[in-house]
Amino acid sequence: MFGYVNINKPELKVKEFYQYKAYYCGLCRTLRKNYGPIGQLTLSYDMTFLIILLTSLYECSTERKKSRCVVHPVRKQMILQNEITKYVADMNIALTYHHLRDDWQDEKSLAGLTGSGVLRSEYKKICKKYPRQCLGISEALDKLTECETNSETEIDYVSRCFGELMSELFIYRQDVWEDKLRKIGFYLGKFIYLLDAYDDICKDMKKGCYNPLIPMFSKESFDENCRDMLIRMMADCTGEFEKLPCLYDVTILRNILYEGVWTKFNKIQEDRKKEGK
């Protein structure tokens, strides 16, 4: 998807890093096995976070094995896979399908057309299995398109579309944790949307494209304002996360939520300073 929900590697123990990597490789392998090389291309860090979160919450039995793959031909890799990996792989494909379809509609891009064509039949199967999530994705993206058409600049209003999308993906089962997972996904989704807008602002300004942050851009305090908003999102996201009884891999989860999510923001700021933005 975007790769914003990342680890902060220097702060992780080696053991924890390998554990993270094993989940990541597990997702990669599941995508390849179920959806072929195209499926594998959709691999992202954001979704690895969701696997670790849901695995920790539901304490699912997870298969740990070592295997070789094309990307790592020399040494066997530790991989972790469970029912959540399958679920998240399906959600990843559903998201990518919509993403590519929108790409094609927006820019008539060939990549969008071919990608979504290949994934269409897979997407239909996923829809049957997870109708709530797929409906959530398409409704949220429709709302987002509407916001773009109307050049909506009310931050909460625009970013909530993506927040709602993530909410549906985070709710794996409709049980006692539904409400908390909904909020975690919601605020993390808003965070991702805003960070993406922050990332694109210079490009969008140049091209004259829609970006909800444009009215704020001329202000001296633009960077500060964006940072404050992003902190808000993570503060509310983690407020809910801390209420979940997650014990396994909780250091990895906290590493991502408290530090890792800022990796991209830091980089953007560094780059802009260099360019003298």
């Binding site: 790769g3 990342n6 680890i7 902060n8 590697k9 220097p10 860090y45 800022w262 990796t263 991209k264 830091n266 980089k267 560094e270």
Partner: peptide
């Protein structure tokens, strides 16, 4: 943090 950001 910046170096890390670039890597990832």
């Amino acid at each position: 943090a910046a170096g890390n950001g670039r890597g990832l």
